[in-house]
């Protein structure tokens, strides 16, 4: 018989409960191992008719691809990275912004890229918040 550490929620029997959602902890399931969090910023100031890409990064030095989560602040909202926005009309007043993130075995990267139309410029600052876990993606 495999031995386990099980802590049930109040009102549930740790010895008999089978729904994992009713267990505060069970050693039968892996969990995310929180490593570090932080913030990164990228400032953009581009002229008209410009295609741009700016990157910022932070070292994690884990020598593996870690599980990670990145949020980006756009306007007043914090949202998961990967979103994009566009306004205006191509090719004159069009503005496009895209936010992306990735990791290597030593660093976490964030990126903003976009385009501007012939009659507009674009200036903004983007804040990112990241969480890195020690869980190895094994990719």
């Amino acid at each position: 018989m495999t031995r386990k550490i099980v802590i049930a929620k109040t009102g549930y029997n740790a010895l008999t409960e089978t729904d994992s959602d009713n267990l505060a902890y069970s050693s039968a399931y892996n969990t995310l191992k929180y490593y570090v969090s932080g913030s990164l910023t990228i400032n953009v100031n581009v002229g008209s008719s410009t295609s741009y890409s700016y990157t910022n990064s932070v070292n994690h030095n884990l020598s593996l691809f870690p599980f990670h989560i990145i949020y980006v602040k756009y306007s007043t909202n914090w949202e998961m990275i990967g979103t994009n926005y566009s306004t205006g009309i191509w090719p004159t007043t069009y503005i496009y912004r895209k936010f992306e993130g990735w990791v290597t075995k030593t660093k976490l990267y964030v990126k903003v890229r976009g385009n501007t139309g012939t009659d507009v410029t674009d200036t903004y600052s983007t804040d990112f918040r990241y969480k890195i876990f020690k869980n190895n993606l094994n990719l």
Binding site: F65, F99, L139
Partner: peptide, 17 residues
């Protein structure tokens, strides 16, 4: 989920173009 690039040097989050 995460996807590894074919270069095997980067791992990207969903939303990556």
């Amino acid at each position: 989920a995460f996807m590894i690039c074919d270069t095997n040097e980067e791992v990207m989050l969903p939303g990556f173009q």
